[in-house]
């Protein structure tokens, strides 16, 4: 089951947030939640890089708690995709990569009227995203 999805650009702006099955309402206003999430991701990345016994290639991949699993995918251009799912979902790195390549790049990057550093307002993108997510086997 997919709970929610965040996409952050390389400067830390949350350009997309979407939720599907989130039960617990956020206790914080959205801006703070995004800042907290980005800050945590940044710390996790640097934590993993320092702690790792060998040189990291991909770095931090995902973490799991008793109730959810957070999957992380970062492109070399600094775009960060974060998806929270239930704990029974396996490795979805390939799915996140497809989301990046087939949805974000196609409908946001290739649209010159879509600014890359502001929240995404394109309805076209949002529709395509919904279709993609709902078609996933673990939705």
């Amino acid at each position: 089951m997919i709970f929610n999805l965040y996409i952050f650009d390389r400067l830390g702006t949350c350009v997309l947030y979407a939720e599907w099955n989130r039960k617990k309402p956020a206790n914080l206003p959205k801006d703070e939640e995004f800042q907290n999430m980005y800050g945590m991701l940044f710390s996790l990345r640097s934590f993993v890089k320092r702690l790792s016994p060998l040189d990291c290639k991909d770095g931090f991949l995902n973490y799991q708690t008793s109730k959810y699993k957070l999957h992380y995918y970062e492109t070399p251009s600094g775009l960060k995709l974060v998806m929270n799912t239930s704990t029974d979902v396996g490795d979805i790195r390939e799915t996140l990569r497809q989301l990046y390549g087939q949805i974000y790049v196609e409908y946001v990057v290739k649209n010159p009227l879509c600014p890359l550093d502001k929240p995404i307002t394109s309805d076209f993108f949002k529709d395509k995203l919904e279709t993609f997510i709902k078609a996933l086997p673990f939705y």
Binding site: F3, N4, E19, N21, R22, K23, K24, E33, N36, M37, M40, S43, L44, F47, V48, L51, S52, P53, L54, D55, C56, K57, D58, G59, F60, L61, N62, Y63, Q64, T65, S66, K67, Y68, L70, N84
Partner: peptide
């Protein structure tokens, strides 16, 4: 980070981080 894992949970009453996976450990 462990505490954040609880806080940012989309589900009720989650624990903190139990497993953290990277590509080298």
């Amino acid at each position: 980070l462990f505490a954040f894992g609880c806080q940012l949970s989309p589900e009720e009453r989650s624990s903190g981080i139990q497993i953290l996976e990277a590509d080298t450990f």
